[in-house]
Write a protein that binds this DNA or RNA. Structure first.
Lengths: 334, 334
DNA sequence: TTGAAAGCGTTACCAG
DNA sequence: CTGGTAACGCTTTCAA
């Protein structure tokens, strides 16, 4: 059965024309006029053989691709981000880009950059933890290999790359402001012990610190693993911490912590106000209803347009877009 | 600055050797012995120029790739699946495959298959909703374009493709058995109104139906959208439904429904038992604690090995693997 | 309107 | 041990 894969030459042979003609017909090349009967014969032959053009050969010849490369996330991101990436996917498809998520399991920044560069994508879109690891050297590797645009999504910018800044400090800032406005002065900030979350948690902590600056409030870092035991232990020594408010990193950690506090008999919000982030459905279902920070990410379309602009004008100096919107959503837990 | 992208010829020139030698050195070809000084010169030149091999050219020459193509999910999947895919990613990398997630936003099954075939991947791994849309024709397109293995993950098998069956009916079956064992006889099954979830929800419903067969229990389909309004309306007419048990699709819908029932003064589990699925953390945090179905997916390593085997022996007849494990986790809500 | 030929970057074969 | 050369599949320029 080892029938080999049909090429455009096979199609040409079957249709009784040259390879060039096949290419013209199949690509609807407008600068050349091909008779309708010929077109039909070519298409028919292609269909019959199950011919599919070879992307590698095509892009080799063309000297460029329409690929947008995104490293696959290592840590399960929040649903917020999954949604954004789906949108982005769609929007880029509409601009005729092919989105490729590329895994780089356990590679260093430079190795990864090399691996990505081998694919000669038109653009590389990297985010959060990755942007930290990519670095100016990685960007340089990519640029030298012909990548037209490198865009980093996330906390910080990287030398030489466009940046779509999603400053997580704003989230912490928002939560801090809200807790302070509620009169809380001894504020804890949950920092998840799960690896890979530091890219979010540390800036959020920093944001709360900034909010507290000059207010006399005291900020305490509170490590917490995402399991009931850890939460129970934390709740057990809660009173000694003497905190009257806590920003729990996100809604899920907030739920975990709030339950543990309640089980320990600690009143929420009377004794301790609890605030989450992400505005997930679950926050509305808890009792007391969870106050949270709603995070507005850019739309997929906006992001796609930034990518497209960068690809079309590779020479342009790196742009910096600040795109993260935050709104406090006060409910019953604060 | 339009310095063009360095090729192996450039490296050869700079190192003062032939292109072949460059290739030998950079690929550590063992069948040829190259002197150490030469090797050093070549590597040095490559580094200096920032040379990165061109994947398209390489695979064109080689006639095959080590790419495993997975369509990017359209609907935000449960964290369970995200975790599996991360593992799979890793495991495939260890087997020297490159995982590529490929978006096919809004394309029909055949268009999508064509688009994937253009990349000439070694294997295509498709799942759930996609497998339904791919179909025997799509599999054929892929096979004819040289894809060595097509593997579908999900509910059903597709003609000509290997199948890793994750029969969601087993989830419903397990929930149904548990509710019946608790003496419930009028059982509701939540079917989310969100599009894209039918691939999971309908088989789960079917599974409950099967569990009930011959027991005299009555199964009622209960549509529910993932918002508080929908849940409140449902709870409002709950007593008329006269259900004494409900399988709520998953833990998140279960949480939503349970809250609405409680707000309506309906006792859980006395009046109505509520069961979720997925065994998320949140189920343990609810009061009453949520009974659920723990779902055991195959490990990423297992899956990767199935893929690898299929790629190495493309001629082998399609295998069918049944891999979904379910265990009831009885807690307080049933 | 169609065909011949060159060339994209790589690697494998075969002489030197 | 090293260097030329051909070939992978495709598009495009030029010539017929």
């Amino acid at each position: 059965m080892e029938r080999s894969v049909p090429t455009s030459a096979d199609v040409a042979r079957l249709a009784g024309v040259s390879r060039a003609t096949v290419s013209y017909v199949l690509n609807n090349t407008s600068s050349v006029r091909i008779s309708e009967p010929t077109r039909r014969r070519v298409r028919e032959a292609a269909r019959e053989l199950g011919y599919v053009p070879h992307a590698a050969a095509r892009s080799l010849r063309a000297g460029h691709t329409r690929m947008v490369l995104m490293p696959a996330p290592e840590v399960v991101a929040s649903p917020l981000y999954s949604g954004l990436f789906n949108e982005l996917h769609w929007a880029l498809s509409r601009l005729d880009y092919t989105v490729v998520q590329f895994g780089s399991a356990g590679q260093s920044g430079d190795q990864a950059a090399r691996a990505w560069a081998e694919l000669r994508p038109a653009a590389v879109l990297t985010y959060s933890t990755f942007s930290a690891r990519l670095g100016a050297r990685g960007v340089d590797v990519l640029k030298r290999s012909g990548v037209r645009a490198v865009i980093t999504l996330g906390q910080e910018r990287t030398e030489g790359a466009h940046a779509v800044l999603m400053d997580q400090r704003a989230v912490g800032r928002c939560a801090g402001d809200h807790l302070l406005a509620r009169g809380r002065r001894r504020i804890g900030v949950v920092v998840p012990e799960e690896p890979g979350l530091e890219a979010y948690s540390l800036p959020r902590l920093e944001g709360v610190r900034r909010a507290a600056q000059g207010t006399g409030a005291e900020i305490t870092e509170v490590p917490l693993a995402y399991d009931e035991g850890s939460a129970a232990r934390l709740a057990g020594r809660w009173r000694r911490l003497a905190l009257d408010g806590v920003f729990a990193y996100n809604d899920e950690y907030a739920m975990l912590l709030m339950r543990a506090l309640q089980d320990e008999g600690i009143g929420v919000p009377d004794e301790t106000a609890v605030m989450g982030a992400d505005d997930l459905m679950l926050g509305r279902l808890l009792r007391p209803r969870l106050s949270t920070v709603r995070i507005e990410l850019p739309s997929g379309r906006e992001l796609a347009e930034i990518v497209d602009r960068a690809v079309r004008d590779p020479g342009a100096p790196p742009e910096v877009h600040k795109v993260l919107g935050v709104t406090p959503v006060p409910r019953e837990s604060t």
